[in-house]
Computed example of a mutant assay.
Amino acid sequence: MIFDLHGFGPALLAGTWMTIKLALASLVVGLILGLLGALAKTSPYRALRWLGDAYSTLVRGVPELLWVLLIYYGSVGTVQAFGEMIGQPELELSPFAAGVLALGLCFGSYATEVFRGALLSIPRGQREAGLALGLSRKRILWQLVLPQMWRVALPGLGNLYMILMKDTALVSVIGLNEVMRQTQIAVTASKQPFTFFMVAAIIYLSLTVLSMLALQWFERRANRGFSRSRA
Score class of each variant (00 low, 15 high):
57 T>G: 04
154 L>V: 02
134 G>S: 09
76 V>F: 13
76 V>W: 08
31 L>C: 13
109 S>G: 13
26 S>H: 06
59 V>N: 04
77 G>C: 05
149 M>E: 06
19 T>I: 07
48 L>N: 11
23 A>G: 12
149 M>P: 04
105 L>N: 09
67 W>E: 09
66 L>V: 14
23 A>I: 01
35 L>W: 07
108 G>V: 00
134 G>H: 11
77 G>K: 09
30 G>C: 03
94 S>V: 03
52 G>T: 02
75 S>P: 07
96 F>G: 11
123 P>S: 15
151 R>Q: 10
95 P>D: 10
67 W>N: 04
93 L>Y: 01
74 G>A: 09
58 L>F: 14
90 E>M: 10
102 A>W: 00
84 E>C: 04
120 L>A: 14
125 G>V: 03
49 R>N: 08
150 W>V: 12
137 R>F: 01
142 W>K: 12
75 S>R: 02
31 L>N: 11
104 G>Q: 04
47 A>H: 00
111 A>C: 09
115 F>V: 03
140 I>E: 11
122 I>K: 06
102 A>L: 01
156 G>N: 11
101 L>V: 07
63 P>K: 10
116 R>S: 04
114 V>C: 06
105 L>W: 04
50 W>L: 15
71 I>N: 10
93 L>R: 03
94 S>Y: 04
136 S>A: 05
110 Y>S: 07
115 F>C: 11
104 G>N: 08
146 L>M: 15
77 G>R: 09
134 G>K: 06
126 Q>G: 13
121 S>K: 06
109 S>H: 07
49 R>F: 00
21 K>C: 14
32 I>A: 15
117 G>I: 01
56 S>R: 13
79 V>H: 01
66 L>S: 07
53 D>N: 15
36 L>I: 14
103 L>S: 11
115 F>N: 07
140 I>C: 12
69 L>N: 08
61 G>E: 04
66 L>G: 05
82 F>H: 06
40 A>E: 11
19 T>H: 05
138 K>Y: 08
117 G>D: 09
133 L>N: 12
48 L>K: 08
138 K>I: 10
121 S>Y: 03
89 P>M: 10
103 L>T: 07
99 G>H: 03
21 K>A: 13
156 G>S: 10
38 A>P: 01
42 T>Q: 12
124 R>F: 00
74 G>S: 08
135 L>M: 15
30 G>V: 00
49 R>P: 03
150 W>E: 00
53 D>L: 13
